[in-house]
């Protein structure tokens, strides 16, 4: 008998406790637990083996070893007792189900979903509602006055050609921009005004990975006595920060639209460092204000238009805009 036997005994005791924990937990009925109990604390059980081993230790080590083995023995007994109580309690619920698979799919009612363009629109709606803009809408079948003349797009302008504009019977057209709603709102309301108008627009574009011929825009308009480019920047910065996060990097770049002057594009810096065009905007052209009967000396305003499909493509990294019109269930089911 060497002196090293005392630590060895402590290690055996710890291993026994480990073994007991898994063996007891694995006993799923009373018979199994009885077998485990016999193996651990029966007359020929593992605990008895340990206790017998104590007597082989040097006399001065026996007291300490005996105490630690007894602690383990009590813990093992407690495990067995707790398990027995649990099994007896469960026994009242009938036989246990050995076929139960907790990973089996749950029972659910069919899940519906909203289209990604709708999800983006809801976000924009929330943002502009917070900014105090009222939601308005206008007809999709329009006349040339609202789609062109009132927007400073004169007869003969290429945008009016049949290659760029859908026409329907009866000298009407399907609007190519939601800016038509600006005109309709101003015709029937006096300033000050703050409105946004979501809607669908149509252009005879050849459909490809970045073009559809029916797509969605949100138009915005604010007119008042002291609305300036400062307000335009403030509102639209608030908008893109709300949509893309407060750290979004943006720039306003000069551009051209017949119905605004000063005109600009708002670009957002993408993750890859490139600038991406997000919306067109500008100060409402005085001719447009005059055309609806406003005093263009007294009132100024800004307007903007943003395409929703493009925003959805950026948000979800969609490589092909046609996904938004295919309505493939495997696509739709990925959205809320």
């Amino acid at each position: 008998m060497s002196d090293e036997q005392a630590p060895e005994l402590a290690a055996r005791a710890a291993a026994l406790l480990n073994d007991a924990e898994s063996a007891v937990a694995g006993a799923t009925d009373r018979d199994a637990l009885a077998a485990v109990r016999a193996r651990l604390v029966g007359k020929r059980g593992a605990v008895k083996d340990l206790q017998r081993a104590i007597s082989a230790l040097p006399k001065e080590a026996r007291r300490a070893a005996g105490q630690s083995v007894n602690v383990v023995a009590r813990q093992v007994q407690a495990l067995i007792d707790a398990r027995r109580e649990a099994l007896e309690a469960a026994a009242g619920d009938g036989p246990l189900d050995p076929t139960f698979d907790p990973t089996w799919p749950g029972a659910v009612s069919p899940r519906g979903s909203l289209h990604p363009v709708t999800l983006i629109l809801d976000e924009i709606r929330a943002i502009f509602t917070r900014l105090g803009f009222d939601e308005v809408s206008g007809p999709e079948i329009e006349d040339a006055w609202h789609n062109f003349d009132a927007l400073n797009i004169p007869a003969g302008h290429p945008a009016r050609e049949r290659s760029d504009q859908f026409y329907v019977e009866g000298d009407r057209l399907i609007r190519s921009q939601t800016s038509t709603v600006q005109i309709r709102v101003m015709e029937t309301n006096e300033p000050p005004l703050r409105v946004f108008a979501p809607g669908r627009v149509y252009r005879p574009e050849t459909v490809d990975a970045t073009h559809l011929y029916a797509f969605h825009q949100v138009e915005g308009l604010m007119v008042g006595e002291d609305v300036t480019f400062v307000d335009l920047k403030g509102c639209l910065l608030t908008f893109v920060q709300s949509l893309f996060g407060p750290d979004v990097e943006i720039r306003f770049r000069p551009s051209y639209f017949p119905f605004t002057e000063v005109s600009a594009e708002l670009d957002v810096r993408r993750a890859d460092g490139e600038w991406m065009e997000v919306l067109g905007c500008g100060m409402v052209h005085p001719d447009v204000l005059t055309g609806v009967g406003y005093d263009a000396e007294r009132y100024t305003g800004f307007a903007f238009g943003v395409g929703l499909e493009r925003l959805a493509m950026r948000r979800w990294q969609l490589g092909d805009i046609r996904l938004l019109e295919e309505n493939d269930v495997r696509f739709l089911s990925q959205f809320g």
Binding site: T129, L131, G132, R194, F229, V230, D231, K233, G234, C235, L237, T238, R251, F252, R253, P254, E261, V262, S263, A264, M283, H285, P286
Partner: peptide, 29 residues
Amino acid sequence: TEVDLIEEVARRIGFGRIPVDVRIPVRPL
């Protein structure tokens, strides 16, 4: 017209020089 020249001024001084401010009066929904 006048506004055409104002746009030229804005374009040449740069939109970056125009500050950002939001003066939006609140009102009921």
